[in-house]
């Protein structure tokens, strides 16, 4: 048990050392980036990967950088950035299609009930309105505002 803990502590220490090392090598003048990366996030996966191949005189190290993957209906997407001569020379968008994209589950019956009606805010089964009008200016007189008042 003690051995196990010691082992874990050791590997943790090594991991930290590697992280600091990596930081010094790659991110010395990009503190904001690492701050963002250590953030906990629900929408993006932590697959951010940066591979620098050679040094250069520019602000950024030469190499290929891959951003975090974001899940979309069409699978994960992420940017792949190429830096050469210290300059950003190419941006690719990588996507890995989700094989199940054809069976999008909305997790409910997505068939609406059709009925044109003026809503009585006080006893309505409706809580949110989806529409194309959207400025704050006109909000006071809107149906959404009336529903919000009813709570």
């Amino acid at each position: 048990m003690i051995k196990k803990i010691a082992g874990m502590a050791l590997s943790f220490g090594v991991a930290i050392a590697m992280a600091i090392d990596g930081y010094i090598v790659f991110f010395k003048n990009q503190q904001t980036n690492t701050a963002v990366s250590s953030d906990s996030k629900t929408t993006t996966k932590k697959t951010s990967k940066k591979v620098a191949t050679e040094t250069s005189s520019g602000k950024y190290k030469d190499g290929s950088y891959t951003g975090s993957a974001t899940s979309t209906r069409w699978g994960d997407v992420q940017v792949q950035i190429t830096v050469s001569g210290g300059k950003l020379t190419n941006i690719n968008v990588l996507s890995s299609p989700d094989s199940e994209q054809k069976s999008i589950q909305i997790n409910q019956q997505a068939i609406p009930t059709y009925k044109t009606e003026a809503i009585k805010a006080q006893n309505s089964n409706i809580q949110q309105i989806s529409g194309a009008t959207e400025t704050y200016k006109g909000f006071t007189g809107s149906l959404q505002n009336a529903l919000n008042q009813a709570e």
Binding site: I106, N107, Q108, Q109, A110, P112, T113, Y114, K115, T116, E117, A118, I119, S124, N125, I126, Q127, Q128, I129, S130, G131, A132, T133, S142, L143
Partner: peptide, 23 residues
């Protein structure tokens, strides 16, 4: 959630309603 779809010709009305759990 009851989601009313606005009637574009009369913004005080809805033309349809979705009842959704997630999405």
């Amino acid at each position: 959630w009851g989601i009313g779809i606005e009637n574009p010709d009369d913004l005080q009305e809805i033309i349809a309603t979705y009842y959704l759990k997630n999405g």
